[in-house]
Amino acid sequence: MDIGELETTAALAQIDLGEGDLARLGDAVSQMLAYFEKMNALDTEGLQPTTHALVKDNRVRPDIVEPSALADDLVDRAPEREDRFFVIPNVL
C-alpha cells in the first residue's frame, strides 16, 4: 500500500499517523493485504456471501417504551459536560 492510500485510509479511520507509524503500520497492513490476496486463488463464482453467522427466524422487538434508568448515570460519565450536555470544542 502506498503512502497516499495509507493516509486516505487513516483519514477515514480518524487516526493520525506520525512518521514512524506510517512505516510500521504501512508494513504490517501491506503484509496482511498481500496475504489476503491468497483468496483470489479460490473460485467463489455463484456463491452467496455469508453476512450473518447463523440465522434462524425474524427477530424484532415490540414498540414498547422502557424509560432509561441509566440516563443520569451516563451523563455523569461524560469527560466534559455542561448541564446535561456533552461538550466538544466548536470552530469559531
Binding site: 414498547i64 422502557e66 424509560p67 432509561s68 451516563l74 448541564d83
Partner: peptide, 24 residues
C-alpha cells in the same frame, strides 16, 4: 410514529430535557 426509538426502548419524543431519553 413509533413510541420508542428504532433500535432501543428509549422514548422517542421531541423537546425533552437534553440527554434524558438515552441509554447505553
Amino acid at each position: 410514529n413509533t413510541k420508542s426509538k428504532a433500535f432501543c426502548s428509549c422514548l422517542a419524543e421531541f423537546g425533552d430535557e437534553p440527554n434524558t431519553n438515552v441509554c447505553p
